[in-house]
Every structure is written in C-alpha cells, then in structure tokens.
C-alpha cells in the first residue's frame, strides 16, 4: 500500500510552547485513522502540520507525489451567517485556478453529482443557514470531495452535533472509506466514534499508542493519554470507555437529594 503521508520526529511549537513532540505517524492509501486525545493535546496542530498550514519546528512531513488533501474544519468555526449558498461553498475549493467569478455549468453539474452522493440533492441554491445540522456537516464534506482528494482530513467531525447527526456522519465516512477514500480525523468522542474506527492514535503531545481500538483503548494507555483513570469494558467485542469519578459524583448528588 502506498504511503500518503509520513511524519518523522515531527515537533511543532507556538513560541516556546511545544504542542506536538517527536511524532512518527504515517497514513497509507485506503486507511481510516482517528487521532484521540484531550483538549490541548496537539490534535488540531498535528492536522495543520500534516496539511502544511503550519511549519514544523523539527522533523519532516512527507506527502506522496501529487497528493491531494482536503480539509473539513470543525463546524463550530463556520460563520453560518455568511452570505453563500451550498453550491457556492462546494465550488470554493476550485478558487485557486479560477479567474472568472461565475460558476460554470460544468461546475454546477459536478456540484449536483457530489450533493446527490451525500444526500443533499436539490439543496444547491439554499443558504447554508437554512440546512439541518447534519446537512451543514455534509456540505463541508461535499466541498472537500469536490476537490477530489486522496486523503480526507477532518477536525472533530462529530463535535457539537446531536446523536442522529453523529450516526449519519459515521455511516457517511464509512461509505466513503469503503469506496476507497483514505480518512484521517481527530475526535474527542471515544465511545461514539473512536471505538468504531479500524485504527486509533492516542496523542498527548507525543504519540502514546497506535493500533486498533482493542489494542489502544486500555486503562493504562487512556490514563497516560488523558491523565485521568478510566475503566474499559468490552461490549459486543468492542471496548467501551467509562470515566472513573462519574459514579462518585452521582453517589454524592443522590446522597444530597436524599438528605
């Protein structure tokens, strides 16, 4: 399998603050990789370094020749009031080579195909605010796919969405991966998303573990990653992560209500 990206001893810092340290990571064609870790663990910085949006202070990032990357940002960072329609958002990734403002009929046709593939057929003329949460997510995936990427990079695709949207998103990403798309994403969501992925990377400035969910979602690795004790149960062959302390909180609250 062809290596799409390879990070070797990658270190990134903002001023004196080292955010990502000595990371070795590669993604090969057809893989579906999730990066998990607590807030501030360097997940987004790692993605940005891979996208070459920020330069590493040490180490290297190699892209395979002619690699096309597409990035889907967190929906929470999007200005939903911005005056653009769905079609205008989708064709944005073609901006680099376009010197004429009008969207061509070919672009419109291509956009319709991508929208149809993502279950957004007929919504091209809608303003982005006039969509449901799940549809809004998919518009940004449509924009990424319009770029015809080899590797789809998503930052927290299920953050701030409801359970139904998260399910839709997981199925959509699984469909894309089955169709041959390589995917790299970050997530906070251990049980809802990470446990379902074929490969996980636990990050806390450095890589703590890299492997299948059953290999890396262990109490020992999770404590090193999150700095807090966690319990792992196996349910239907899949790991389910429980936070320690949650039961203690509920005991305290029920005692208080009883008294």
């Amino acid at each position: 399998m062809k290596k799409l990206i390879e990070c070797r001893h990658l270190t990134c810092a903002y001023g004196n603050a080292v955010v990502v340290k000595d990371v070795d990571l590669s993604v090969t064609s057809g893989e579906f990789v999730g990066v998990v870790g607590p807030s501030g663990s360097g997940k987004t910085t790692l993605l940005k370094a891979i996208l070459k949006a920020i330069p590493p202070t040490h180490g290297h990032i190699d892209h395979s020749e002619g690699l096309r990357l597409a990035y889907v940002p967190q929906v929470e960072t999007v200005d939903w009031n911005f005056p653009v329609t769905v079609t205008e958002v989708v064709v944005m990734t073609q901006s680099r080579h376009k010197w004429w403002p009008h969207i061509t009929s070919k672009e419109r046709a291509d956009t319709e195909l991508v929208l149809e593939r993502l279950g957004l057929a007929g919504l091209g003329g809608r303003h982005i605010r006039e969509l449901s949460g799940g549809q809004q997510q998919r518009v940004f995936i449509a924009r990424a796919l319009f770029h015809q990427p080899d590797l789809l990079v998503l930052d927290e695709p299920t953050s701030g969405v409801d359970v139904r949207t998260r399910h839709e998103m997981m199925h959509l990403l699984a469909d894309l991966n089955e169709g041959g798309m390589s995917i790299l994403l970050t997530t906070h969501d251990l049980n809802g998303l990470a446990a379902h992925l074929p490969r996980l990377v636990c990050l806390n400035t450095s890589v703590i573990a890299d492997g299948t969910p059953n290999e890396v979602l262990t109490p020992e690795v999770l404590e090193r990653t999150y700095g807090a004790p966690m319990e792992v149960l196996i349910h239907g062959g899949m790991p389910v992560v429980l936070e320690h302390g949650a039961d203690e909180v509920s005991r305290r609250l029920s005692r208080r209500n009883a008294s």
Partner: peptide
C-alpha cells in the same frame, strides 16, 4: 474584485481551508 472574486470570497469565509487548498 472580478478577477480575484472567488479567492476573496474563500479567504473571507474560510481562510484556513483556503490556505490549505492553495489560495
């Protein structure tokens, strides 16, 4: 504005992704 319209819109709406896509 006519010539750079698409780039200006992309860079205004979503500068981070615009940068990654080569704008």
């Amino acid at each position: 504005v006519v010539v750079a319209y698409r780039k200006m819109v992309f860079a205004t709406f979503d500068p981070e992704v615009a940068e990654v896509t080569g704008v």
